[in-house]
Lab assay of single mutants.
Amino acid sequence: HDVTIHAGDKTIHVHGASEEFLRIIEQAKRDGIHEEELLRLIEELVK
């Protein structure tokens, strides 16, 4: 999957995102996670 995530003034493109990655991001959004926290989460996941 190619994913584009908008968080605040940043746009992150993730190529080859796994289903698990997508679920984590969707869950985080539903939980109302702060955008900066979401960015950190994404950066950890894509290392």
Rank of each mutant, 00 (worst) to 15 (best):
H1G: 11
H1Y: 15
D2P: 13
D2Y: 08
D2A: 12
V3W: 00
V3H: 06
T4N: 08
T4E: 13
T4D: 11
I5D: 05
I5A: 04
I5H: 06
I5N: 03
H6M: 05
H6S: 14
H6G: 10
H6F: 00
H6N: 14
A7F: 14
G8H: 05
D9S: 15
D9V: 05
D9L: 05
D9E: 13
D9K: 09
K10G: 07
T11M: 10
T11Y: 02
I12L: 08
H13C: 04
H13K: 09
H13R: 07
V14W: 05
V14A: 03
H15D: 05
H15V: 10
H15K: 12
A17H: 04
A17F: 12
A17S: 05
A17K: 02
S18M: 03
S18C: 02
S18I: 06
E20G: 06
E20N: 04
F21Y: 03
L22D: 07
L22A: 05
R23G: 12
R23E: 15
I25S: 00
I25D: 00
E26C: 06
E26H: 07
E26L: 04
Q27S: 09
A28D: 00
A28K: 05
A28V: 07
K29A: 10
R30C: 05
R30F: 09
R30H: 14
R30Y: 04
G32C: 01
G32T: 03
H34M: 15
H34L: 15
H34R: 12
H34D: 13
H34Q: 13
E35Q: 15
E35S: 15
E36I: 09
E36Y: 05
E36L: 11
E36N: 13
E37M: 07
E37P: 08
L39C: 14
L39E: 08
L39Y: 06
R40Y: 07
R40L: 14
R40A: 12
L41H: 02
L41R: 05
I42Q: 00
I42V: 15
E43V: 12
E43T: 11
E43M: 13
E43S: 11
E44L: 12
E44A: 12
L45K: 02
L45D: 01
L45C: 04
L45W: 14
V46N: 08
V46D: 04
V46A: 13
V46E: 07
V46M: 15
V46G: 09
K47S: 11
K47I: 12
K47N: 13
